[in-house]
Design a protein around this nucleic acid. Structure first.
Length: 496
RNA sequence: UCCUCGGUAGCUCAAUGGUAGAGCAUGCGGCUGUUAACCGCAGGGUUGUAGGUUCGAGUCCUACCCGGGGAGCCA
């Protein structure tokens, strides 16, 4: 019996196996909050209705002790799942001494160093269950459409586009690299099977310390023969609407635990705005963008003032407050300070972001802040297409109507989250690709197998890469991508 | 590599250059419906490291180490 099944067994005697998440109680009555991976359930033990051994185990159990609990399921509307367990007997499976993650706030450094234990807490539980749902949903989407899942190699023999960002390793005295993308292999597989998708790990050695970067992350890369840019935009749109719908339908509890406002997710419906890179640049440089950023700054200033006022009022009350009230005021003060820090940082960043947007030059790629600013203009994912070819990879197809442009696409998640998908239509012409390889100063020998795809029945084809962790960060409304993978790999952090 | 903020009890944080404290956790005691329960008592400190200024340094100065956020970088 698992906790998530309890509600269907009201009135029955059941046995749960799990860990003690928290405990409250009095001399003759204990409330044990049990965790079994599927959820939390309150188990009530009364001194006069259990045997002495059970009472002693319950009384002495510490946080994260492993327990088996037998009791009767009863309705209790005060509980999260609507039910609780009235304990008849209870046994200790594994003791737990001085569990480090206490029911109180912790700093990110401490939590990251205890990630192996932090996974047991409620927020990671909610986030990683949504991750599971997204993975299942993505597979279902592609499988239902006849795509075959295929794996690209993780070890590769050459650095595909520039060498600086890859992890290098020794492969029997040869240089090898951890893959940064399965895309070129995806193209070969698409020529063999029609429509395929890869789903696997990807590695980037960039020294980026930001909330959107990991050095190891999971990417989904569909690649489709006989697809053009328009077909691919439609596919990305269908995929995102599907996974958001599934998350809303199956992860209501998890999203509630995260405090995610689901209204922006409910708005994720077709059609998504489609704007060209050139239109996006115009939008960035517009008065509308400048005004929007000024409004945001002003709103933050006002919020800041309100918080400062509340802080002062709370401090005045603190003197006469009783202990319980003081604790609440302390907690509120910490929350206010944290928010004030965020506001201060935003107020420090926004003027620079405004300048960056205003003075953006046609031809360069969008920076993180430019993407964020663009997303604030739309209430659903925005699809930006036709980028300057110089800013994109060598294998991108050129726009037949404007040779400066590549048939690339990016999808920017709303609410400031930014790029979750990058891809486009691939070049089909052998001579053009040979030129590009030379122009990018790439070793032609390494690409001979790739060029074969153009020598033997070259067809229009396209694909994209979807970053799983960035997708989840957006859907969960999470601050930092590191919380969306069980054991994040970041610059300067390789353990646990 | 650069900018910026930080490092004080196991954890989260306080502390005008002048006796290092609180909450949580732990231990003991109280309480028969708690929801981060509550109430009382107790133990718990090389204030990141190394120097310097000062009668006196958690606080000021210098260097270094570690971490957060951001920039650059990043299909």
């Amino acid at each position: 019996m698992t906790i998530q099944e309890l509600a269907a067994h009201v009135g029955q005697e059941v046995t749960l196996k799990g860990w003690l998440y928290n405990k409250r109680g009095s001399k003759h009555l204990l409330f044990l909050l049990l965790r079994d991976g599927t959820g939390l359930a309150q188990c009530v033990a009364a001194a006069d209705s259990v045997d002495a051994g059970t009472w002693r185990v319950a009384d002495e159990a510490t946080q994260e002790s492993a327990l088996t609990v037998t009791g009767k399921v009863v309705l209790d509307e005060r509980q999260a799942g609507g039910v609780e367990l009235v304990v008849s007997s209870l046994a200790l499976v594994g003791a737990s001494a001085e569990y480090p993650i206490t029911p109180k706030e912790h700093g990110i450094d401490f939590l990251m160093s205890h990630r192996h234990l932090w996974l047991r807490s409620r927020l990671p539980w909610a986030i990683l269950r949504i991750r599971n749902r997204l993975i299942a949903s993505i597979h279902a989407f592609f499988q239902e459409r006849g795509f075959l899942q295929m794996d690209a190699p993780i070890l590769t023999g050459n650095a595909v586009e520039g060498t600086s960002s890859l992890f290098e390793l020794d492969y029997f005295d040869e240089k090898a690299y951890l893959t940064q993308s399965g895309q070129l292999y995806g193209e070969a597989m698409a020529m063999a099977f029609g429509r395929i998708y890869t789903f696997g790990p990807t590695f980037r050695a960039e020294k980026s310390k930001t909330r959107r970067h990991l050095t190891e992350f999971w990417m989904i890369e569909p690649e489709m023969a006989f697809f053009d840019l328009e077909d691919t935009l439609g596919l990305a749109e269908d995929l995102l609407t599907r996974v958001v719908r599934d998350a809303l339908a199956h992860c209501a509890e998890e999203l509630a635990i995260l405090g995610r406002d689901t209204a922006p997710l409910e708005r994720v419906r077709k059609p998504f705005p489609r704007i060209s890179y050139t239109e996006a640049v115009d939008l960035l440089r517009s008065d509308a963008t400048a005004r929007m950023l000024e409004d945001r700054m002003q709103a933050l200033e006002e919020e800041n003032a309100a918080l400062a006022e509340e802080l002062a009022a709370n401090r005045k009350r603190y003197g006469q407050a009783k202990k319980g009230e003081r604790r609440r005021l302390d907690a509120r003060e910490i929350a206010i300070r944290r928010r004030a820090d965020e506001i201060a940082e935003a107020l420090q960043n926004l003027p620079a972001w405004k300048d960056s947007a205003r003075s953006f030059e046609w031809g360069s790629d969008f920076g993180g802040s430019d993407e964020t600013v663009l997303t604030w203009h739309f209430d659903r994912p925005a699809m930006v297409h036709r980028y300057p070819a110089a800013a994109k990879a060598f294998y991108m197809k050129r726009d037949p109507d404007d040779a400066r442009l590549a048939m690339a696409l990016d999808v920017l998640a709303p609410e400031g989250y930014g790029e979750i998908i990058g891809g486009g239509e691939r070049a089909t012409d052998l001579a053009f690709l040979e030129e590009q390889i030379a122009a990018h100063d790439l070793p032609k020998e390494a690409f001979e197998w790739y060029l074969d795809l153009r020598r033997f029945g070259s067809v229009p084809h396209a694909g994209f890469g979807l970053g799983l962790e960035r997708l989840l960060t957006w859907i969960g409304g999470i601050d930092h991508v590191r919380e969306t993978i069980p054991f994040p790999r970041l610059m300067g952090r390789l353990s646990p």
